[in-house]
C-alpha cells in the first residue's frame, strides 16, 4: 500500500461521510418549524462544504480551491447577516412590549388564577377567564366610546391583532412580513 493510495482512501472516506452529514442537515432545513432552524442548518451546511472543499483541494492537488473555500466562508456569513437584516424589525415595530404581550400576560394571569381557584375547590361554572375582558369593556364604555367603535376596538385588540399573532403562530416563514403588517 503506497502512501498516495492511503491518502486517497482517507480523503474519499471523509468526503462520503461529509456527504451523509450534509444530507442530514438538509433534512433539518426542510423539517425545521421556524426560519431560525433553517438558517442554522444552512450555516452548518456551509461549514461542512468548506471542509469538503479543503479536503478536495488536498485530494486533487489543486491549490486554488482554498481561495474558493475562503470566499465561500465570507458568503455564508453575509447570507446570515442579510437574513437577519430582513427579519429583525426595527424601532417601533419591535413587538415585545406591545399590546399582544400585555394581552397574553393578562390572559395567563386569569388562567392561572382560575387554576388556583379550581384547586381550592370552587365550582367550575363560577370560574371563567373573562374577568380581565369585563374590566376592559367597562373601561371603554366609561370613556364614552360608541358601540361600533367599541366593537371595532375589541375586534382590533382581540381579533385582528389576535389574528396577526395567529399568523405569527402559523410560522410559514413570513414572520417578518406579518410583523410589518402589525406596525
Amino acid at each position: 500500500m503506497s502512501i498516495e493510495k492511503a491518502y486517497q482512501i482517507l480523503f474519499l472516506t471523509a468526503l462520503i461521510w461529509f456527504a451523509f452529514l450534509i444530507f442530514a442537515m438538509l433534512v433539518r432545513s426542510v423539517m425545521g418549524p421556524r426560519i431560525t432552524d433553517r438558517l442554522l442548518s444552512i450555516n452548518m451546511i456551509g461549514t461542512m462544504v468548506i471542509s469538503c472543499i479543503v479536503i478536495l483541494s488536498r485530494l486533487s492537488g489543486e491549490a486554488y480551491l482554498v481561495d474558493v473555500a475562503l470566499i465561500y466562508a465570507m458568503i455564508s456569513f453575509i447570507a446570515v447577516l442579510v437574513m437577519a437584516m430582513i427579519y429583525i424589525p426595527s424601532g417601533k415595530r419591535r413587538a415585545r412590549f406591545s399590546e399582544d404581550a400585555l394581552l397574553e400576560y393578562r390572559l395567563e394571569k386569569e388562567k392561572t388564577a382560575g387554576y388556583q381557584r379550581a384547586k381550592d375547590g370552587e365550582k367550575a361554572e363560577n370560574i371563567t377567564g373573562a374577568e380581565g375582558m369585563a374590566d376592559d369593556e367597562a373601561e371603554r364604555k366609561a370613556e364614552g366610546m360608541a358601540d361600533d367603535e367599541t366593537e371595532g376596538k375589541a375586534a382590533g385588540t382581540y381579533g385582528t391583532k389576535g389574528k396577526a399573532a395567529g399568523t405569527c403562530e402559523a410560522e410559514t416563514g413570513s414572520d417578518g412580513a406579518s410583523s410589518e403588517e402589525e406596525g
Binding site: 421556524r34 426560519i35 431560525t36 438558517l39 442554522l40 450555516n43 461549514t47 468548506i50 479543503v54 482554498v66 473555500a69 475562503l70 466562508a73 465570507m74 456569513f77 446570515v80 447577516l81 437574513m83 437577519a84 427579519y87 429583525i88 424589525p89 419591535r94 413587538a95 415585545r96 399582544d100 399573532a165 405569527c168 403562530e169 414572520d175 417578518g176 410583523s179
Partner: peptide
Amino acid sequence: LLIFFMWFTSPVSSHFLSQIEYYTNPH
C-alpha cells in the same frame, strides 16, 4: 486565515440568529 475568519464570524452569526428568534417568535 480561514480558521481565523471563521472563529471571528461564527459567533456573530449565532448572535444574529438568536436575535431573529427573539424578535420574531411571539411564543
